Amino acid sequence: MSWSNGRAVIVSRRGGPEHLRVLETRFPDPAPGSVRMAVQAAGVAYGDVLLREGLVPKTSYPVTPGYDAVGVVDAVGEGVTSPALGQRVLARTEGRGGYATHVQVSADFTVPVPADLEAGALVALPLNYLSAWQMLTRVALTPAEGTVLVHGAAGGVGSALVELARLRGLRVIGTASAARLPALTEQGASAVDRGGDWVRGVRALAPGGVDTVFDGVGGFTSRRSFALLAPGGHLVVYGITSGLAGGRRSPAALARTAAGTLRQSALGLFSKGLGIDGYMSATYVPAHPRRFREDLTELVALLQRGAISPTIAARLPLERAQEAHRQLAGGVSGKIVLEVAPA
């Protein structure tokens, strides 16, 4: 077996951003069915924070975070016919490995991409935009010209939901902090300050209710949002950021989230004509590799045509992963990208 030398961000143990360290690492040849990529850029996500904080089941340390990466295939495992050696690809990991100069991924979760597309925009697609696209097109089909409510609408997945929902002709109401409301308005959304009485604000904009709510906050936010649904509406829960406090594991925040969790029986949903759906990318994507490739290919085509333009909150070198996590905890508009210099 041959090895490639490089660098990786390692989480040494559960805790804060200070436990992220860049270490010299050796990367083995890929296993059968997999490829190894020389990474050009990696995305930073809340899932990485959950991994660092010990909130992802079956995590053992040390571990390298990173769900999404773009780069060039530099080794091909046995049985792989596509992608080819030297081909540029966009990839989705199993939730680990992206923060590195090299990463091994299943060939089933790669999509070839043109050499001229910018790496930062591309790396916003496999997690943020794919999650948004699949929720809009596969989980909760909102009626044409319907109204959707997006919580955390200035964040990574939230801003993708706003852009893609608008692209599909939907009316969008988005909640965000006061400082980020102008950005939402520029995207064409009706912006509501989440720090105020956002329920009242949404009711004023949609007196008859909204068709779909996309909630990555969870807890009491889900409960209050359910009451805002129009007949036939759906609540889609895709995250529990309310379980963190300042980007850190918090027993008190987790307890509040659990206490506020919406509980509805099947009979109750039937009688109200409403639906609740859950979307967990870490579960849905591995179960449906064909859908992953189809949907990501469509998103790359939209990017290439200029139909979508991912918001990049920050571009930082791999060595500043700690800062990336601190920025994410403080709230950002769009995607944070780690740019990777060649090994």
Rank of each mutant, 00 (worst) to 15 (best):
V150P: 09
P83I: 08
R138C: 04
V103I: 12
G120Y: 05
D68P: 02
E94H: 05
L127N: 13
P114N: 06
R138V: 11
E118H: 09
V76D: 02
P62W: 11
A100H: 05
V105S: 04
G71S: 03
S106K: 13
R96I: 15
E94P: 00
D74Q: 00
D108K: 14
E145W: 02
E78H: 13
E94A: 12
T64A: 06
T147N: 07
Y129V: 01
R88Y: 09
L127W: 01
V123T: 14
V73K: 10
T64S: 10
S106P: 01
A132C: 12
T142E: 08
S106Q: 12
A115R: 07
W133K: 06
P143S: 03
G152P: 06
V111F: 00
V103N: 14
V123K: 05
E145N: 13
W133Y: 11
P143I: 15
G77S: 11
A124C: 05
P126Y: 00
T93A: 08
T93G: 08
L130N: 06
A91H: 05
Q134E: 14
W133Q: 06
P112K: 03
V89Q: 03
A121M: 03
W133S: 05
G97W: 00
M135D: 00
W133H: 10
A119G: 01
R88C: 05
G120H: 00
T142M: 00
T64M: 06
N128D: 15
L136Y: 07
Q134V: 12
G95V: 07
A69I: 09
V105M: 03
P83W: 05
A75L: 14
G120W: 00
T142D: 09
T147V: 15
V72P: 00
A119H: 03
T81G: 13
S60P: 01
A75P: 12
V139M: 12
G79Y: 13
T142H: 02
R88N: 10
H102G: 01
P112L: 02
P143T: 04
L117I: 13
P65C: 04
S60C: 06
A115L: 02
A91R: 01
V105T: 03
D108W: 11
